[in-house]
Computed example of a mutant assay.
Amino acid sequence: MKKFFTVLALVAVIFSVAGFAAAPAQAAQKLDLAICGGSIGGAWAAIGEGVGEVVRRSYPGSNTAYEVGQEAANLALVSRGKIQLGIAHAQLIKMAADGKQPFKKKIDNLRALCVLYNGALEHFIVKADTKANTFADLKSKKYPLKAYFNTKDSFMDIVGKKVIEAEGITAADIDKWGGFTKNSSMGAALDLMRDGKIDAYSNVIQVPSSHVVDAGTTLKLNLLGMSPAAQKKVNDELGTYSAVIPKSAYNFLKNDVPTVGATVILFTNADLPDDEAYAILKSIKDNFPYFCNIHGSLKGLKFSEIKNTAPVPLHPGAVKFFNENK
């Protein structure tokens, strides 16, 4: 009898250990998450709300909240544990980990959960009445460009300014020519363009962008393409990649537009419990068709590719999830 109970106890221990090892697959039944992204009405707001929705669908009773954010600030908030999830460009997170400007010190405790979209491409939008088809045109004419870039210290802002620098133009040059450079969200900047108050706007966005399509219905626009040398310089500095906006993307384009691109990811703090990271990704997988229809930027998303978050390392819970869900 004593031997029987010993064997029974051993079996119980084995099942207990097996159950513990499988815990991340079951995941927490209720999650409490805040998600920070971008301004209301933009792609990141829609995606952030969508992440919350799939979590609530898979784990009823979960509490999720979307927080309006700014990209560089999002990294700091998630790093300090104030917010659990954030949306940002992978390349900016790598810059933060390396302690590059605009970051005053290294932020190296951020980890990726998954790719949201790869096709975030630099758009340097100008009004056609500038008569500029290239950055060289702006430079040779010393055009007094009134230009807005995306929110200050966001990756979109950094890319836009690096692009003009790589093409041999600085903000100081534009000031000297009688123009100016400022920062604003996309919606506000395009409204200023419609009102005739600015000539240009730079942003890193999906293709096609509904904002640009809409603006093109009332404004005569153009996109300035980058030279190969400028593409290489920006890629070397920021970790972006060379890309092309096809002329079919917007009805005002006459040619394909060479540019640079970046990857947008869902990220978290390295200290997020593994089972919660697993559960978030499971909720995305369980609701993948719905998730891909949250916003146009997600339409081409493939589940087999969302683990490719380089240069940002995956969270351990994400590593386990992708190992078990090929």
Rank of each mutant, 00 (worst) to 15 (best):
V264P: 00
A18R: 10
G48S: 09
M156L: 06
R111C: 11
A96I: 06
F5G: 03
P246C: 12
L33E: 07
H123E: 09
I245S: 01
W177G: 02
A12F: 07
L272F: 10
T181C: 12
V312K: 04
E71S: 10
L192V: 03
T240N: 14
D191V: 13
V207Q: 00
M226D: 03
A27P: 04
F20R: 11
A230H: 01
E53H: 10
S304G: 10
D157H: 12
Q29G: 14
N293C: 05
G160L: 09
A12R: 04
I40R: 10
N203R: 07
A171D: 08
G119T: 11
A21I: 13
A188G: 09
A27K: 07
K233N: 05
A25D: 09
V319E: 12
L110R: 01
I14A: 15
E165W: 02
L8M: 09
A132R: 00
L272E: 08
D153T: 13
A215N: 03
I174G: 01
A25I: 07
N183I: 03
G37S: 10
S79H: 09
L77G: 00
K326H: 13
I294R: 00
N203V: 15
T217C: 01
S154I: 11
A76T: 15
V11N: 10
K94D: 14
E237T: 11
K142D: 01
A96C: 11
W44H: 13
F4N: 06
A243C: 05
S184G: 05
A112W: 00
L33P: 04
A34C: 12
A73S: 06
S227M: 02
M95G: 07
S184Q: 08
A88L: 14
I14C: 14
A279S: 10
L301S: 06
I93A: 05
A171Y: 02
D157E: 10
G81M: 11
N251W: 05
Y59D: 03
I87M: 13
R80K: 14
F20I: 14
I306E: 01
E71D: 14
T218M: 03
N203H: 13
E324A: 15
Y148I: 02
L190W: 00
I284K: 01
K285M: 12
D98Q: 15
Q26N: 09
N323E: 14
L190V: 07
F180A: 08
F4K: 13
A9K: 08
A96L: 11
D175G: 07
K146T: 00
Y59Q: 12
E324Q: 14
L219Q: 09
G119C: 03
